[in-house]
């Protein structure tokens, strides 16, 4: 027993060291090479920068060929609009499903959840057809609506599971007070489901931030409205020979979402596991 305890501890240590190296070395390279010149990176990518300068990061942030600050603003705007739309649309639907009795509600839930299994790669080309027909191709509203649609399955699942845990007595007493379905939901139920709303929002923020195909195809490869992800893609494919541009641009692209992840890691990791297992 004693011997296996020591062995177990050593094994754990070895595993932790291996895992840390494999995860941290790429991030280490990303950070340190953002402070070096192209020549210095090509000479020794793993070494710490000779003289520490923010010039390359400032250069990437203010490069006239790719407006990083505008990309931040576009992405932030997209994140805010889609989150608001998603909650406005999904909240009442999840409430109706969670409180509804009968086959019809289960069927609708299955329809909404089933959409989770349709690969975006298959529906993207026909989606262009739909957006063309609706006159929404190459428009921001087109992107807002498709992105919102993509958030519905997970969000409806998280919300309805949470609402089911709220006692129906609350609805009944609101009903006795003369409140309609919408008022009951927004004034009584919605304020209680903050944890579920927070989880859904956090997952949607990450999902929208890293989404490449949606904005790339719907806004069009030639569009000058670019999110951080599509902007970085367009920029790096063009200037991939100059590492002193590539590294700082990548660092700037991940910095906001990395900070977001550090602050909200528990909610992100936990929410994702809950969503995936039960879904």
């Amino acid at each position: 027993m004693k011997r296996s305890g020591v062995l177990g501890k050593l094994g754990h240590l070895a595993g932790v060291v291996a895992l840390s190296l494999i995860m941290l070395v790429p991030l280490y390279l990303l950070v340190i090479n953002s402070f070096k010149s192209d020549a210095e990176i090509r000479l020794s990518a793993f070494a710490l920068p000779g003289d520490f300068t923010f010039d390359y990061i400032v250069g990437a942030a203010t490069d006239p060929k790719f407006n990083m600050l505008k990309a931040y603003a576009v992405t932030l705007f997209l994140v805010v609009v889609v989150n608001i739309l998603s909650i406005l649309v999904t909240g009442p639907a999840a409430y109706a499903i969670a409180r509804g009795r009968g086959m019809a509600y289960r069927a609708i839930m299955l329809l909404l959840l089933g959409a989770l299994f349709i690969p975006g790669q298959v529906t993207l080309i026909p989606l262009i057809y739909v957006l063309r027909t609706l006159g929404l191709m190459h428009t921001l509203p087109g992107l807002f609506l498709t992105s919102t649609g993509a958030t519905i399955p997970t969000t409806v699942f998280l919300f309805s599971a949470y609402i089911k845990s709220i006692p129906r007595d609350l609805d009944e007493s609101a009903k006795l007070d003369g409140a309609g379905r919408y008022r009951t939901f927004w004034q009584i139920i919605f304020p209680i489901m903050k944890p579920a709303v927070a989880t859904a929002m956090v997952l949607n923020v990450v999902g929208i931030w890293v989404d490449f195909l949606g904005p790339r195809i719907i806004l069009g490869p030639g569009s000058n409205v670019r999110t951080v992800t599509t902007g970085v893609y367009a920029y790096i494919t063009k200037y991939d020979t100059d590492f002193s541009k590539v590294y700082p641009t990548m660092l700037l692209a991940v910095a906001p979402v990395l900070i977001f992840y550090v602050l909200l890691q528990k909610r992100i990791i936990g929410g994702l596991a809950a969503g995936a297992i039960k879904g």
Binding site: V89, A96, I125, L127, G149, V156, G180
Partner: peptide, 27 residues
């Protein structure tokens, strides 16, 4: 009330996920 609560979500999923899947077969 239930129908009006459900329809925006259903509409979005149908228009942007289900119809494209059907269209994929047609196209």
């Amino acid at each position: 009330a239930d129908i009006s609560m459900l329809s925006p979500a259903v509409l979005l999923v149908v228009v942007f996920c289900v119809i494209p899947l059907g269209l994929a077969i047609y196209l």
